[in-house]
Computed example of a mutant assay.
Amino acid sequence: MTQRGNRRELLADAAIEVLARDGGRGLTHRAIDREARVPEGTTKNYYPTRNALFEAIAHYLAERHVAALEALCAHIPEGVCPDDITALYAAMLSRMSGNARSQFLALFELHLEAVRNPEVRTALGEISRASVDTAVQLHSAVGRRIGRRGAGLLDAGMLGVALSTLSLPGELVEDLGLDDAEGLTRALLTLGGTRDEPALEVLRDWAG
């Protein structure tokens, strides 16, 4: 990778941290310069406007997300079973509010920006499309069918749970069972139409 490429990646990672920590209003060229520890004016040289900043972050996250899911689908192990799929999605759900917290906080800020910015909306569409394609392929690998609408519902549900987990008071998250990654995953997979168990039974078990 060229030095210019490395600098763009450095700035994008710094911008994600700033957006996650300070929100859209705090996303400034100077804040990113400070976060990346580069000379003042560096970010503005690469991304002259705020729109350019949002679009760069969105496309950067989309590229990483799509690449990760393509790698996952290219290396589905032999003997994978439905329980493995459940465990994978539960791990993803935990990661959203765990070690990938900054990326998902930034992602939610981008969803707000996408209401007004078509370029950001396009990038978020790439993320959602890749998630849907992956769900279809993973479930096909274990002999289960999930339609694109069901996979879309699964993706939206995962994002909604992650947003609630990150934004609601901790005691309420626990009270509502939103910290039960495995139980929530089973319920979301059921809503998506991928489980053999009767939907009402699975949802009733999770809801207590």
Score class of each variant (00 low, 15 high):
His59Leu: 06
Ala181Val: 12
Leu19Ala: 07
Ser128Asp: 04
Leu10Ile: 08
Asn99Ser: 15
Arg4Ile: 08
Arg8Phe: 09
Gln103Lys: 03
His29Gln: 09
Pro169Ile: 02
Ile127Trp: 07
Gly125Glu: 05
Leu93Tyr: 14
Arg4Gly: 12
Thr190Cys: 14
Gly79Leu: 06
Ala181Phe: 10
Val120Gln: 01
Asn6Asp: 15
Val18Leu: 02
Ile57Trp: 13
Met1Phe: 08
Ala187Trp: 05
Thr185Val: 04
Glu70Lys: 01
Thr134Phe: 03
Glu78Thr: 08
Arg21Glu: 13
Arg7Leu: 10
Glu171Gln: 14
Gly170Gln: 12
Pro48Phe: 05
His139Asp: 03
Asp83Trp: 12
Thr165Tyr: 10
Gly150Phe: 12
Gly208Pro: 00
Ile146Leu: 04
Asp22Ile: 04
Ala68Pro: 00
Asp33Ser: 04
Val115Glu: 06
Ser128Gly: 09
Asp196Ile: 01
Arg186Asn: 01
Ile57Lys: 06
Tyr46Val: 08
Leu27Cys: 13
His29Trp: 13
Ala114Ile: 03
Pro169Gln: 06
Pro77Tyr: 10
Thr42Asp: 11
Asp205Pro: 00
Asp133Cys: 02
Arg64Val: 06
Arg50Thr: 11
Ser164Ile: 06
Asp83Phe: 03
Thr194Leu: 00
Gln3Val: 14
Leu168Ile: 08
Ala130Asn: 05
Gly24Thr: 13
His65Leu: 04
Ala20Thr: 06
Ala12Lys: 00
Ile57Gly: 07
Ala71Gln: 10
Arg121Trp: 07
Gln137Trp: 05
Leu88Lys: 12
Gly98Pro: 11
Glu171Ser: 13
Leu188Cys: 00
Leu191Met: 15
Met92Cys: 08
Pro169Ser: 01
Val136Ile: 13
Arg145His: 08
Leu19Asn: 07
Ala12Cys: 12
Gly208Asp: 12
Leu69Met: 15
Arg21Tyr: 01
Leu27Phe: 06
Ala187Gly: 05
Met158His: 14
Leu138Lys: 00
Glu9Cys: 02
Arg121Met: 08
Glu197Pro: 10
Leu184Pro: 02
Met1Asn: 10
Arg21Leu: 14
Val120Asp: 03
Asp83Glu: 13
Asp83Ala: 10
Leu88Gly: 07
Thr185Trp: 01
Glu70Ile: 13
Thr86Met: 01
Glu17Tyr: 00
Glu70Arg: 14
Arg8Lys: 07
Ala156Arg: 11
Leu153Gln: 12
Gly147Cys: 04
Gly5Tyr: 07
Gly23Val: 12
Met92Glu: 15
Leu188Met: 09
Val136Leu: 04
Gly26Thr: 01
Thr42Pro: 14
Val18Pro: 00
Arg4Gln: 10
Thr43Glu: 13
Ala187Asn: 02
Met158Val: 14
Gly147Pro: 02
Thr28Ala: 04
Thr194Met: 09
Gln103Val: 03
Asp180Cys: 00
Arg149Gly: 12
Ala181Pro: 02
Ile16Pro: 02
His65Ala: 08
